[in-house]
Simulated assay, not measured.
Amino acid sequence: MEVVMKVSETLKSLKETRLSGLRAPMEFFDFHRISRPAGLDEAVQRISYNTRYFSGNYGLIVAVLAVYAIIVNPLLLISLAFLTLGFVAINKFGADPMQVGDHVVTQKSLYTGLFVIGIPMLWLSSPLGTFFWLVGASSVLILGHATIMELGVESEYGTVQDAV
Rank of each mutant, 00 (worst) to 15 (best):
E2L: 12
V3P: 11
V4D: 08
M5W: 13
K6Q: 13
K6R: 14
V7C: 08
S8I: 07
L11D: 06
S13D: 14
L14Q: 15
L14W: 15
E16C: 09
T17M: 13
R18V: 12
L19R: 01
L19F: 12
S20L: 07
S20K: 09
G21E: 05
L22G: 03
L22T: 03
R23T: 04
E27G: 09
E27I: 06
F29P: 00
H32T: 13
R33L: 14
R33P: 10
S35T: 09
R36W: 15
R36N: 15
P37C: 01
A38W: 05
A38P: 06
G39F: 00
G39R: 00
L40S: 12
E42Q: 05
A43V: 02
A43W: 02
A43D: 02
V44S: 15
Q45L: 15
Q45Y: 15
I47R: 02
S48N: 13
S48M: 10
Y49N: 06
Y49K: 06
Y49L: 07
N50A: 01
T51L: 13
R52F: 11
F54Q: 00
F54M: 04
S55E: 05
S55G: 08
G56W: 04
Y58A: 00
Y58L: 00
G59W: 04
V62S: 10
V62D: 07
Y68H: 12
I70C: 12
V72L: 08
V72C: 10
P74Q: 03
L75Y: 09
L76W: 03
L76K: 04
L77P: 07
I78P: 08
I78R: 11
S79K: 06
L80D: 07
A81M: 07
L83E: 07
L83W: 04
T84H: 14
L85V: 11
F87P: 09
F87G: 13
F87C: 13
N91P: 04
G94E: 01
A95Q: 07
A95K: 10
P97Q: 00
P97H: 04
P97A: 06
M98E: 11
G101M: 01
G101Y: 00
G101A: 01
D102K: 11
V104I: 08
T106Q: 04
Q107R: 10
T112D: 14
T112C: 14
T112G: 15
G113V: 01
F115W: 08
F115T: 05
I119P: 07
P120T: 01
M121A: 08
M121Q: 06
L122H: 05
W123L: 13
L124Q: 11
L124M: 14
S125M: 01
S125N: 02
S126T: 08
S126D: 11
P127R: 02
L128G: 13
F131C: 09
L134W: 03
L134F: 03
G136V: 05
A137T: 07
S138V: 01
V140G: 09
L141S: 02
L143A: 05
L143N: 02
L143S: 04
G144C: 01
H145A: 00
A146D: 01
M149N: 05
M149R: 06
L151A: 03
E154L: 09
E156W: 08
Y157I: 05
G158A: 15
G158C: 11
T159W: 12
T159K: 14
Q161D: 15
Q161C: 12
Q161Y: 11
D162F: 11
V164H: 14
